[in-house]
Design a protein around this nucleic acid. Structure first.
Lengths: 240, 240
DNA sequence: TACACGCTTCGGTGACTGCCGAAGTATGTG
DNA sequence: CACATACTTCGGCAGTCACCGAAGCGTGTA
């Protein structure tokens, strides 16, 4: 059974084939790194994972062929990012299944500096996560904008909230408006889906939050504290 | 880096380790077979997958050690089943990501006899799936019992429906009451979660549905047709 | 007690795969 | 046109892993 040539952008051959793409430490590291939603170059990923450029190149070839990554060539750079929100969700789901036991303690410890900022607030693919994401999600819930007791869905009040805040929700896609994403450092769910993405995008555009450095950590600005207090009744202290 | 002895019921070492458990055709076949929610013996799985008993035994050891399967020894039999609903969901999610392209056409064709019954109605771990599951989910939705436009959650009317039907929902667990499960033959979502499981259990207990043979296919009884029409306004034709 | 059966353990084998460095190609720069 | 940079391809190596059959162990049956 030889390779038969790259199947056209299709997903891997089967459950086992798909899982095989995740089943290598280096590739898994790539995917987790790419969970920040940004595009990385092949070289960045190679250095990040500590492998030779040639090795990274081969891994990227498999991930792209398997449909997990999208690539974009710009000059001599090869930018890759997660193919879509479905893939991001899959990576999250797998990671959430794994981390419950806290298998990553050493790493959490090692990077305690950057780790603290990441725990406070960060992006998870295209929505807000960390304590920030959870605080906002909790605020939505207690104010009756988000219903979590019988599933996970925005209420009519929630729809109004987005409209009032001037955040447009694209309701034409097949992606769910609201979905729960399990934060694997906090073990709590936060708002993902179209609404989570729109909120995150708006928060960054309006500078309610800003990215810290090149990592996916984010910090709430003073403007953000004011707006979150005003619109959701969230105390500033909960965002720090 | 040797095995260091089986980690106590803990999940696999990391994302890559977990994925590695799925990344073998035989093990993946086991997991998909076990998606019926029943307990299989080691021998049954070995014959099903077409491998030697010794090979199956080794695979089961890994799956159990990785926390994906629960085992129960009875005399000279070793029964295994999916460890819990979280694992079942993970298998579903992976499978759903893979099948979009219809990679399994040949198999669908080969078993067209049993396949037709499976497409009509079946269980997916602990809830109803196939056209039956989708028809019921649609009925819930159009009657305002289930909200899918802003996420996926039962409405208050939905809670009343379950109460009126005499189906008790266990709301003490951390498992969500309602979740969407993507059916990978129909490419449509259907009701899973605590409510989906309770509905399925009740439907089987009350003989609204009966299992066909040893497979996971189910058929709606005449009593079931009456009750589904009465309680949800579903036409009998939609259930056949 | 003898035998059948289900499962497990063990040794060996073949295939696969991740890794590297070296050489090659394409792109941007002095 | 050289030269540096980013990536890819190739050959080779080493480790891992799925597989089998044979032998062993424990359970249920004649």
């Amino acid at each position: 059974m030889t390779s038969e040539g790259a199947r056209k952008s299709g997903p891997a051959f089967g459950l086992a084939g798909l899982a095989g793409l995740f089943a290598d430490e280096t590739r898994a590291g790539f995917l987790l790194a790419l969970l920040d939603g940004r595009a990385w170059t092949a070289g960045e990923l190679a250095r990040y994972a500590g492998v030779a450029a040639s090795t990274a190149s081969e891994h990227l070839g498999k991930l792209v062929a398997g449909g997990l990554l999208a690539e974009e060539r710009q000059g001599r750079h090869r930018y890759v990012r997660l193919a879509d929100a479905r893939v991001a969700q899959l990576v999250e789901d797998l990671a959430a299944q794994v981390d419950p036991a806290g298998t990553r303690r050493p790493r959490t410890l090692r990077e305690s500096g950057a780790g603290a900022a990441m725990a406070r607030g960060r992006t998870c693919y295209d929505h807000l996560a960390g304590r920030l994401g959870i605080a906002l999600t909790d605020a939505f819930t207690v104010r009756g904008l988000l219903r979590q007791d019988t599933g996970f869905a925005l209420t009519d009040g929630g729809l109004r909230w987005f409209a009032d805040a001037g955040i447009v929700l694209d309701r034409t896609t097949r992606r769910p408006l609201a979905r729960a994403c399990l934060d694997w450092t906090e073990r709590r769910v936060h708002l993902a889906g179209t609404a989570g993405a729109a909120l995150c995008r708006h928060a960054l555009d309006a500078r309610w939050c800003v990215r810290i450095g090149t990592e996916r950590a984010v910090r709430v600005t003073e403007e953000g504290e004011r707006r979150f207090a005003e619109l959701l009744g969230v105390e500033a202290a909960a965002l720090r």
